[in-house]
Design a protein around this nucleic acid. Sequence first.
DNA 1: TAAGGTTGGACAACTTGGTTGACTACTTTG
DNA 2: CAAAGTAGTCAACCAAGTTGTCCAACCTTA
Lengths: 149, 149
Amino acid sequence: MEPVPMLLAMTYRALGDQFHDRLAQLGLEPLRPAHGYVFRFLKEKRATTVDIGHHLGVTKQAAAKIVNELDGWGYVLREPHPTDKRAQYVTLTTKGRDYLKFADNLWTDLESEMAEAIGADTLDTVKQGLAAYLRHVHGEDQPGLRPVW
Amino acid sequence: MEPVPMLLAMTYRALGDQFHDRLAQLGLEPLRPAHGYVFRFLKEKRATTVDIGHHLGVTKQAAAKIVNELDGWGYVLREPHPTDKRAQYVTLTTKGRDYLKFADNLWTDLESEMAEAIGADTLDTVKQGLAAYLRHVHGEDQPGLRPVW
DNA sequence: TAAGGTTGGACAACTTGGTTGACTACTTTG
DNA sequence: CAAAGTAGTCAACCAAGTTGTCCAACCTTA
């Protein structure tokens, strides 16, 4: 049996590849995982570029580059911060929210296919097991994302 | 509950970070995952740089860079190919085999800790589940490695 | 057995996705 | 109110890959 990290990485890759393939069929912009994480983050809360960088676990410069791309594609826009004249809030546009909804559906589909392939109960055990291990390692304070990409 | 890809990525990261931390404590060279995969590959079979590139799923140039590093650190050496004067076999040195043994022990430790944290039966279900999914997606012909790194 | 296509290895230029460092304008704190 | 800290931008750099080119050696194959 393959070692655990290999299994994790290959499964992650398999899922990601399928997601990307289906996305590419629609001729969307070449969004990378980091973009998706930004969407998900912005759905929750208003955030500045610095916030995003912190959430992704990269420097603010790297985050700024990503935000610039998303802005250029029309997925987000910047609006002035109400109290801090230096800062700007980055917010999702309608296009951004539409993309996120679409992506969520796609992920749900992929997870359903996985459940069908290996059994819903097995998938559930997998998820619970990994989540438990992460709690074991990190305690409650999850690390600033930055998985692999 | 977090979506599956996130769980996979974070768990992979958590394991990899711990591995790397413990390795770094020993002041070893900054080996990356790709190096480890090369070691494991070379333990099985004699291989040329091109073979290695194919196995890793990268170009031969990228593979050559990795082999050069490993050579510089004394983990591998090149020896002439018996029948093909262009080619060279890359083989593990004693230092390389020692490292591999050490790394294997470390991975075994980490997996044991994981088993302890979430239960050996749960870990087993996780492994079986992921392996089953990979078979479902890829059939028998595993893709040329290249997980995430 | 010579000719033409293929392959292993190396070198160079470029691309990507990040980094560190420096600077300005603004904010917060002692 | 002065000093320290922070948001955002610009620029230089770096790591790990890519493509493109080449040569020498190796297959075919006619």
